[in-house]
């Protein structure tokens, strides 16, 4: 027994720190969030140890429901736009010659690794009322008065699509890349038009990629509170801003925690759906 333990000891020493770390800084904090969502807030901005479902009931207030539907709508628009822009792009990379492909993928990854506040700050410079685009358009005589582009809902959508596009493109590219070209040749030989080849072969085969890309876009889009602040001027509230405010300014922790639980549940449902689609694909 002792001898066995002695042999195991190095392994425990190796895995132990990471295991301990994940329990302390992932599992326990998440349990705190779950716990706090069932407590009540007190007048000092903290929480009292009284169990209640109040924060979950509060979620159904019309102002919060409006923020929910607004956020889901924005995330849906973002995801769909990313798919529309990203799909043809991913397709073109996948069909590019091998030596060019590597660089095309690398060029998609690069901006994705640069801190997104710096990149969104670039958009801010471009779109401002006294910004680069307005100045150019006036100088060219296309418009006479500057356009109000920044601090609009459209600007928020632009920022979201900009920030998340690589998340959509990469899984799409991987799944398009995998398509067996002999299938496409067979379809052509059998007289299928380009349109029907796309609808009946390419699209169904790349469904897992479309799904993965959508999830990888949709989930993070719900939490990007700083984009609506930098591009929308904080005019419209989204779920990310709402959660942030509960912890920093409004100090209603139970409500913020309940909102986070909703976000986790949405994530888990989408992940579950994704693994189902994946396993269906494997069976076929």
């Amino acid at each position: 027994m002792i001898k066995k333990l002695g042999k195991k000891l190095p392994t425990i020493v190796m895995i132990g720190p990471t295991f301990f770390w994940l329990i302390l800084f992932v599992l326990i904090p998440l349990c705190y969030v779950i716990g706090i969502s069932f407590l009540t807030k007190n007048a000092y901005g903290g929480v009292d140890g009284i169990l209640s479902l109040q924060s979950y009931k509060d979620l159904f207030q019309s102002e919060y429901l409006k923020i929910f539907t607004g956020s889901l709508w924005l995330s849906l628009q973002t995801t769909i736009l990313c798919l529309i822009i990203g799909y043809p792009f991913a397709y073109l990379i996948a069909k590019a010659p091998a030596n060019r492909k590597k660089y095309m993928v690398l060029m998609i990854m690069l901006p994705f690794w640069i801190n997104s506040i710096i990149r969104i700050y670039g958009w801010n410079t471009l779109l401002r009322t006294e910004g680069v685009i307005n100045h150019l358009l006036i100088a060219l005589g296309i418009i006479s008065k500057p356009l109000e582009m920044l601090y609009t809902d459209g600007a928020v959508l632009l920022g979201m699509v900009y920030d998340l596009l690589p998340f959509t493109i990469l899984p799409l590219y991987t799944s398009i890349e995998k398509i067996d070209t002999s299938l496409l040749e067979a379809a052509r030989d059998l007289g299928a038009t380009k349109r029907s080849t796309f609808m009946k072969i390419i699209l169904p085969l790349t469904m897992p990629g479309i799904f993965a890309g959508s999830i990888q876009t949709f989930i993070p889009s719900l939490g990007l509170f700083y984009i609506s602040e930098m591009m929308g001027g904080g005019k419209t509230m989204y779920i990310g801003n709402l959660i942030k405010n509960q912890f920093l300014s409004a100090r209603n922790w139970p409500l913020g925690a309940a909102l986070s639980i909703i976000l986790i549940i949405i994530t888990l449902i989408l992940m579950k759906l994704y693994t189902r689609v994946g396993s269906l694909e494997d069976m076929a």
Binding site: P29, P220, L222, G223, F225, I243, A257
Partner: peptide, 12 residues
């Protein structure tokens, strides 16, 4: 989601 991770650590 990152935001949940962030507030979980803050609360902890």
């Amino acid at each position: 989601p990152e935001i949940v991770f962030g507030i979980a650590l803050l609360v902890f």
